[in-house]
Amino acid sequence: MESKEFIRGILKTLILRLLSQTDKMYGYEITQKVTELSKGDIKLTFGALYPILYKLESEGLLVTTTEVVDNRARKYYSLTPEGKKLAKTKVSELQRFTEIINTILGDGMKPQVSFGS
């Protein structure tokens, strides 16, 4: 199994978590935040990010607003009340899962992953 498959499984949770910590974010901002928080270990590309953003929006978990910034349209994403609830649930589920995996594998394994092409 490749490392990116780990990320694929938790990408939805990652996005929900990031958006739960702020009012709104746009696509590039999300990729930068992920890179920054993972200290460059995880790099989200457009290919990974946008299909899932559109999916979350179509599921009613995200809402969007468009603003004109520097003469171009910028689409911001924010969580709906339903999205906020799901973010909490998903994050606690993932934390619990990580604890279990850590228990099984032991601590000290820092992943070096790059996701997307």
Binding site: Y28, Y50, R72, A73
Partner: peptide, 10 residues
Amino acid sequence: DEMTDHICSE
């Protein structure tokens, strides 16, 4: 539009 903004930002 979104990809244009993404690449412009990058």
